[in-house]
Simulated scan of single mutants.
Amino acid sequence: MLKFVSRNSIKKHTATVIFMHGLGDSGHGWAPVADNLSTILPHVKFIFPHASTSNSEFWDVNAFMDEKGLFESFEKVKQLIKSEIDSGISSERIVVGGFSQGAAMAYLVGLTLDQKLSGIAALSGYVPIHNKIFSMVSEQNKSIRIFAGHGTADPVVRYELGQRSAEELKKNGYNIDFHTYNGLEHSTCPQELMDLANFLQTSLPENSQ
């Protein structure tokens, strides 16, 4: 199973967010976000997996050009989800998310997994191998909630790529809430994190178990 950084829930654990980092980062890079969100999501456990280096990098550019590597990564994320389900968390109380290429992996998992999830959170990301993904989508997640955020000045994953992905998802009947952040480069910002927190509160309400 993938190694990861986790932040346990403050109150009774009834929901989980699995969030994947971008290229060149690690789970440690995003763990502080959970520290900030825990006060408003005290029932949520956060898991930040580290990219595996056994086959290139877990979700790096080369892996995304290589479908075999991409789907090997997918299987490893599925193991994390299974572990949470085995611990007593319903799949419908799990959100998968990520930043940049971690967001691309979140799209792949959330759109094709054969167990119903609560939502997808994609920051500065895109739908990878979109022609193939849309032929593999699972009926269980046709109504999945999707939050996507992207900066207009992103020089790494261009804003237009994220926007086109959102448009393609809408054309295929998905409920996606796409947020634009003017002037933001390949990063996040307080407003985006606030919007993400609102999405997670709606997707994983504390009073639902």
Rank of each mutant, 00 (worst) to 15 (best):
C189Q: 12
S73A: 15
L23Y: 10
A197E: 08
N175M: 04
I144V: 10
S83P: 02
H43R: 07
N131M: 07
N62L: 15
I144L: 02
A166P: 00
G69A: 12
N141E: 10
S52N: 12
E84G: 02
E92C: 04
N172K: 15
F58R: 07
N55Y: 11
G173Q: 07
A106F: 02
T188D: 11
I94M: 01
A106H: 01
N141F: 03
G88C: 08
D154K: 01
I120F: 08
H13Q: 14
A148I: 02
E84R: 06
G173T: 08
H130S: 15
H150Q: 13
F48D: 02
E168H: 10
F71H: 04
T152W: 10
D66E: 08
D177N: 10
S9E: 13
K142V: 12
G24T: 08
N141D: 11
K12D: 12
L117W: 03
A15M: 03
A166G: 13
L161C: 05
K116G: 06
F64V: 10
I40L: 11
N8M: 12
Q163G: 00
I18D: 03
H13A: 07
I85F: 06
K45V: 03
S143M: 09
G119E: 04
A104W: 01
Q101V: 04
I40P: 00
D60G: 11
R164K: 15
P42M: 00
E92P: 02
M105K: 00
G88Q: 06
D177R: 00
L41V: 06
D60P: 00
F147S: 09
N175R: 11
T39H: 15
Y174V: 01
N172R: 15
F58Y: 08
L80I: 14
G110E: 08
M194Y: 08
M65S: 09
S26W: 03
I146E: 12
P32R: 13
F48V: 03
D35E: 14
A63H: 09
K12Q: 14
G162A: 06
L200A: 09
Q191K: 15
I176P: 00
N198T: 06
S203A: 15
E206G: 13
D154N: 04
T188N: 14
V5C: 02
R158L: 15
N36M: 10
S203W: 05
F71V: 00
F64P: 13
E57L: 13
D154M: 04
N141V: 07
D60H: 05
E185T: 09
E92K: 14
F58M: 12
N198I: 04
L80Y: 01
D60F: 05
E160P: 08
Q140M: 13
G173K: 10
